[in-house]
């Protein structure tokens, strides 16, 4: 049945090379394993979008967006289906970071250029809050059964609405977490020897 006509997914994915397709599962793996490693090292952050950001730097926004969505599809399979909605956040982060990478924001030659990296961190954190916040309110009513609930609880106890409480908890956690992800992803990406970098990444980082 399939194959005769060109399907929608074919049209979207037509521009990806085989190498790009092979990189997507790598990003998913890095996201999931990286999140688990924070437990081993007792780092009080999620760091669950490093793979997505790495893919954005090494292979571009669209590939990274597919990797981001797939991460949460896989997480909803191996951990809990409640992770599924936040795939939208991953995709948005990927698009923003990948676009900025294309514009040369990851190209650091002198000291001043670190401001660009800070800019990426701000952009990614903002995107994450803007996309994650409505999902948190509409789907979960602010509570997800994880540690940030405490912050939501404090805001609600102080008499704020659920919308404000959810925004508050996002603002407390996301900027630190996403900024750390951006910096760590950059450091890891630059530690990859040039010959193993996909061609997109070679152009972005050197």
């Amino acid at each position: 049945m399939a194959g005769e006509s060109i399907t929608i997914t074919d049209r979207i994915s037509g521009r990806f090379t085989t190498l790009a397709w092979v990189l997507i599962p790598v990003a998913v793996g890095i996201n999931v394993v990286g999140g688990a490693l924070t437990n081993v090292l007792r780092i009080p952050l999620f760091l669950d979008s490093i793979g997505t950001l790495l893919l954005a730097i090494l292979a571009g926004p669209l590939v990274a967006a597919v990797g981001g969505v797939l991460t949460n599809v896989v997480l909803s399979v191996v951990r809990s289906p409640t992770m599924l909605p936040f795939g939208a956040t991953q995709a948005a982060i990927a698009l923003v970071a990948g676009y900025l990478a294309k514009r040369g924001w990851f190209l650091i030659r002198e000291r001043r250029d670190y401001l660009k990296l800070a800019g990426v961190a701000v952009a990614v954190a903002t995107t994450s809050v803007l996309v994650g916040w409505p999902l948190l309110v509409w789907i979960f009513g602010g509570i997800t059964g994880t540690a940030p609930d405490i912050i939501v609880g404090i805001f609600l106890a102080a008499g704020f609405d659920i919308e404000i409480a959810a925004l508050g908890s996002q603002l407390v956690i996301e900027p630190v977490d996403k900024a750390a992800c951006v910096v760590i992803a950059y450091v890891i990406a630059t530690s990859v020897p040039d010959r193993y970098r996909p061609s997109f990444g070679q152009r972005i980082l050197s």
Partner: peptide
């Protein structure tokens, strides 16, 4: 069969297989 690209299907399957492999690798690197 319902028209999803075989590439999407591949990345889904590959990701599921990749995670345990990478987990193992991460363990030995650790």
């Amino acid at each position: 069969e319902k028209g999803v690209s075989n590439k999407i299907a591949y990345v889904f399957m590959a990701a599921l297989q990749f995670i345990p492999q990478m987990q193992e690798r991460a363990q030995s690197i650790l």
